[in-house]
Simulated assay, not measured.
Amino acid sequence: MIQESNAYINMPDNALTSYFRNAGDMLAEESMLLGSVVNSIIVSQELLTNKAIILRLMAALKTTEDAVKGDIIRKTLEIVVNHTIDDI
């Protein structure tokens, strides 16, 4: 669940974290993927922005050959785009 992950503390958008909290286990795989993306951005010392998250998800979608994983990435990307505001 999203509130258990330290990766989400620094998220640029509260609407996104709220969405995952309210979804509970229904979005467990998407939540894990998003947490992984956020951690990756933080570890690489990049600025954590909605744009950075979206770009990482798009890159993952472009390189995956696994159809199931592609669906999870697509769904996560859709959620991020629909539940975040533009970075200023």
Rank of each mutant, 00 (worst) to 15 (best):
I53A: 01
I79T: 10
A60Y: 05
S18M: 09
V37K: 02
Q45T: 12
A52L: 06
Y19K: 09
D13K: 06
T63Q: 10
A7V: 01
A59P: 00
A67D: 15
T63W: 03
Y19Q: 03
T76W: 04
Q45L: 09
L33Q: 07
D86M: 10
R56V: 12
A52V: 07
L34G: 04
D25Y: 08
Q45M: 13
I73T: 08
L33W: 06
A60G: 08
K51N: 10
K75V: 04
L16C: 07
D86I: 09
N50K: 11
A52D: 08
N14Q: 14
E4F: 08
V43Y: 09
N82Y: 05
I53Q: 09
I41A: 04
E4Q: 12
S31V: 05
I72S: 01
M11G: 06
V38L: 00
I72E: 06
N82I: 03
T49D: 03
I73S: 06
L47E: 15
A52M: 07
E30G: 01
D25C: 08
V68P: 00
Y8E: 05
M26I: 03
I73F: 02
I2C: 08
K75I: 06
I79W: 02
S36Q: 14
K51S: 14
V37T: 06
Y8K: 00
D25N: 10
E78S: 13
A15H: 11
L55W: 02
T17Q: 10
E46T: 04
L48S: 05
A60S: 10
R56H: 12
L33V: 01
I9G: 04
T63I: 11
L57S: 11
I53F: 04
G24F: 05
D13M: 08
L61R: 13
I79F: 10
T63E: 12
I2G: 03
V37A: 01
I42T: 15
S40G: 14
G24S: 02
M58Y: 04
V37Y: 02
V81Q: 10
V80E: 05
N82K: 15
I9S: 10
T63C: 04
S18K: 15
E30H: 12
I9K: 12
T49Q: 09
K75N: 13
M11S: 13
Y8S: 05
N14D: 09
E4M: 11
L47H: 09
I88R: 09
M26V: 11
V80F: 03
M1W: 04
M32I: 14
